[in-house]
């Protein structure tokens, strides 16, 4: 059946402390388009199906190629990137909502600062002596590179936190993304030298022990990062570290 329109329902909320409302839009159908182009069309023609002129909806987006992580939102009940959500694959009316585990800013925009704070707490970096010319880095096994690359593609989009029952707007749990980043830095030849600091942080408040093993994260990750493997690996690493600390390794 040929469609002539795209029907959208957008959950609107002017700010964190005001009530939300739903607005419905009907825009002309075009093949091979995504949620972002639909939102752009609404912005160019901001009238609800009732013919009411409304404010342009507010959303977060940047690269539109699913590498920046900005445009995560809940689309027909599922958290994902709006750029790679193709209209032709979605049931209409398409419902757009903001993520629920992060403080709401406005409409579809939330504040994911807690994810960047978690990376800070986990010492998620390779300590280097300086940016001057110190020659080549360590040799790296191509297999280890392939493993590291698959973890390094995490774009801090927040999907894994959104689906995690242990993450709530008030809980301190850092979530799968940050745990997996600890694994990434601990496997690097230089990062390994400072693995202890990260493991200590990972065993602290809101760390690994708050994981409830629901395994939702790995299914929600748009980059297919092996998050549950990372959690398991960090479980083993922290256990080994504790034993070593106890018995003096």
């Amino acid at each position: 059946m040929a469609k002539n329109t795209i029907e959208l329902k957008i959950k609107r909320q002017d700010g964190p402390n005001v009530a939300a409302r739903w607005e419905e839009f009907s825009i002309p159908y075009k093949p091979n388009t995504n949620i972002i182009s639909a939102l752009m069309e609404v912005r160019r023609h901001p009238y609800t199906v009732q013919g009411q002129k409304t404010t342009p909806p507010v959303w977060d987006a940047n690269c539109l190629e699913e590498v920046c992580g900005a445009c995560s939102m809940i689309i027909n009940g599922k958290v994902r990137q709006a750029c790679s959500a193709l209209i032709d694959h979605l049931e209409q009316p398409i419902a757009l909502e903001p993520m629920t585990k992060f403080p709401l800013v406005r409409d579809l925009v939330v504040d994911r600062r807690r994810m960047f704070d978690a990376l800070k707490r986990m010492h998620a970096w390779i300590p280097i002596d300086g940016t001057y010319n110190l020659g080549p880095g360590p040799r790296v096994d191509p297999n280890m590179q392939a493993g590291a690359y698959s973890l390094a593609r995490c774009m801090t989009c927040g999907c894994c936190l959104e689906v995690c029952p242990q993450v709530t707007p008030t809980s301190k749990f850092i979530g799968a993304a940050a745990i997996s980043q600890v694994r990434l830095f601990n496997m690097h030849p230089t990062g390994k030298m400072h693995a202890r600091e990260r493991l200590e942080a990972l065993m602290g408040e809101g760390g690994l022990q708050d994981c409830g093993n629901a395994q939702n994260c790995v299914h929600a990750c748009p980059k297919e990062i092996p998050l549950t493997e990372s959690i398991a690996a960090m479980g083993r690493e922290t256990t080994a570290y504790v034993l070593k600390r106890l018995f003096g390794g």
Binding site: I128, L134, G135, P136, P142, Q145, A148, T190
Partner: peptide, 21 residues
Amino acid sequence: GIVYLLDRMGVPFNRTPEGLL
């Protein structure tokens, strides 16, 4: 020197079988 520095910072550059960039 820049590529070496990025490598030291942990960029997962593709490798040759010998483990070089």
